[in-house]
């Protein structure tokens, strides 16, 4: 409690610290690019580097929502199941002849509804977020398999594959990612409600005394997170020709890892969506780099986990020096 009070009292220094973490991650991305390119020149070409960004897009969109959730002092481990449900809804609607934009809109709407359920249970029924979203993870995953019976969704209309197309030479997922991250960044930095998220995550009681209603803020954060997961599901579903029934399994780990590696404190109150974007990019890049460095695919997860731990350790040690 003592630390969170001081953090809340010195917002200026706080933003300075997170900017440094973003710098560390950006440097790591550049450094990794240079090292891997020297070892294997094939790594350094536009198609490959753009591929990494495209592969990260749907993770980064969800990580933007996760940033808001974690900054507000909560967590959402149901995003993987939510992604699966939204992707299935979009796919089923489109396959049964609904106009594609409508299918996408319903998927996003479904995301917001699920987010709202999480939000009501966390903010107003006051159940800890980890319990609520752990329960939702099971409920949604179980329900999804019950409905789909484990079947894949195939033979989707051509118009469905939004993520495979480009606009002005840049792949659509990259556009969506940049717009979402940009908007969330502006919102969290300059909007009254965005600042309120930091206030609630830093010290809910102090925020309440300052005239903010922490419950409304938390509810709002979960709804926005649901919308962004719905959007991520659209990007995810429209990439490949089939939607698997286990879509999104383990997705929560990718999103939370990216967010946390990007310097968003799991204790709430600090972090930025730019950091979350860079963190997600770094993790994807490590995966691709390992392939180019001919790391056995069986060791990939260990390497990825090790590097996540390394960035977190650097962050912890750096913070300690400044504390």
């Amino acid at each position: 409690m003592a630390t969170s009070t001081t953090r809340w009292a010195t917002p200026a220094r706080r933003s300075g610290v997170t900017l440094q973490q973003e710098g560390v991650i950006a440097a790591a991305i550049l450094g990794l690019t240079v090292v891997v390119s020297l070892a294997n020149p094939d790594f350094f070409n536009t198609t490959n580097l753009l591929d990494i960004v495209v592969n990260t897009a749907y993770i980064a969109v969800a990580a933007a929502g996760m940033t808001m959730v974690i900054v507000s002092g909560n967590i959402d481990i149901s995003v993987g199941s939510m992604l699966g449900v939204c992707a299935t809804i979009a796919g089923e609607l489109a396959r049964n002849g609904a106009p594609v934009p409508l299918a996408f809109a319903v998927a996003v709407l479904a995301g917001s509804v699920m987010g709202a359920v999480n939000g009501i249970l966390v903010a107003y029924a006051r159940i800890p977020a980890i319990v609520v979203t752990l329960g939702m993870l099971s409920i949604l995953r179980g329900g999804l398999i019950l409905v789909t019976q484990g079947r894949w969704i195939e033979s989707l209309p051509e118009a469905f594959f939004f993520s495979q197309r480009s606009t002005l030479g840049i792949p659509n997922p990259v556009w969506v990612m940049l717009i979402v991250v940009g908007l969330v960044w502006l919102f969290m930095k300059y909007h009254r409600w965005g600042r309120a998220i930091y206030a609630v995550g830093g010290n809910a009681e102090a925020a309440r005394l300052a005239g903010i209603n922490p419950q409304h803020v938390q509810f709002f954060v979960f709804v926005v997170n649901g919308v962004l997961v719905g959007l991520a599901a659209v990007l995810y579903a429209s990439r490949f020709t089939a939607i698997q029934s286990n879509a999104g399994q383990g997705f929560e780990l990718a999103v939370i890892s990216g967010t946390v590696v990007g310097g968003v404190s799991i204790l709430g109150g600090t972090g930025s969506v730019i950091g979350a974007l860079l963190g997600s990019l770094l993790i994807s890049q490590i995966g691709t780099a390992a392939i180019f460095l001919k790391v056995s695919p069986f060791w990939l997860q260990a390497v990825q986990g090790g590097l996540i731990l390394l960035t977190v350790l650097i962050d912890v040690l750096r913070r300690r020096r400044f504390a």
């Binding site: 946390v260 997860q301 986990g305 090790g306 996540i308 731990l309």
Partner: peptide, 16 residues
């Protein structure tokens, strides 16, 4: 965070 990272690392050890 620590056990989230080791979740990936130990699983990676298992596969590796």
């Amino acid at each position: 965070i620590a056990t989230l990272a080791t979740l990936a690392i130990y699983r990676g050890f298992s596969f590796g």
